[in-house]
Amino acid sequence: AEDTGVRVELAEEDHGRKSTIALRLWVEDPKKLKGKPKDNGAIEFTFDLERETPDDVAQEMIESGFFHESDVKIVAKSIRDRVALIQWRRKRIWPALQ
């Protein structure tokens, strides 16, 4: 995936059974963002693979004050890339469950 400066990782082990997963996001390279992020914290949140979109979560992070609105696309892309990887991995490892 492209290096967006925003890192997203699983916050729990994925067994491929739940549609909701816990993710953790943090800024690795603030220089890649247009605005100043709120702080250096890691933001943990849940994401429903079947019902939600990365754009929804990114928008909620902007509205919650974590990022400037000009960074909504880069945050959404960072989440989207990780979600795509998780879904690809699920289909490869547990095809019968998907």
Binding site: R7, W26, E28, D29, D39, N40, G41, A42, I43, E44, F45, T46, V57, E60, M61, E63, S64, G65, F66
Partner: peptide, 27 residues
């Protein structure tokens, strides 16, 4: 505790914790 919880109006919870130094990229 160093954890901070932010709840968005749509109901999603964001839990913020410090990033370990080892996870931050060296510049």
């Amino acid at each position: 505790s160093s954890l901070t919880q932010v709840v968005h109006s749509a109901g999603r919870r964001f839990i913020v914790s410090p990033v370990p130094e080892s996870r931050l990229r060296e510049s």
